[in-house]
């Protein structure tokens, strides 16, 4: 496996750390606030529901 192929997109940061060296990076912890996540979930749910509802439409474009 080549050096490039070894790193998948889930480990982009690992590659960056490898290039820069361990001392150049530092950890950052971020707590996920579920209340905030709810707005993304709500938007995506509405979008998915709206986009699924096209079967059987009577409209014709002419």
């Amino acid at each position: 496996m080549s050096e490039k192929a070894k790193y998948t997109y889930s480990s982009v940061g690992a590659m960056f750390r490898h290039v820069l060296g361990k001392d150049a990076v530092r950890p950052v912890e971020v707590t996920v606030k579920t209340k905030q996540m709810r707005s993304v979930q709500s938007f995506v749910r509405k979008l998915e529901a709206a986009c699924l509802a096209t079967a059987g439409s009577a409209m014709v474009f002419k």
Binding site: G13, F16, R17, E29, V30, V32
Partner: peptide
């Protein structure tokens, strides 16, 4: 700075996404 997501862990306050930053 750059921020890279590394992993997810649990804490009493909820989920934590662990990033690390690079200059």
């Amino acid at each position: 700075a750059y921020y890279f997501p590394k992993s997810v862990s649990k804490s009493p306050e909820g989920k934590i996404i662990n990033f690390f930053s690079a200059p």
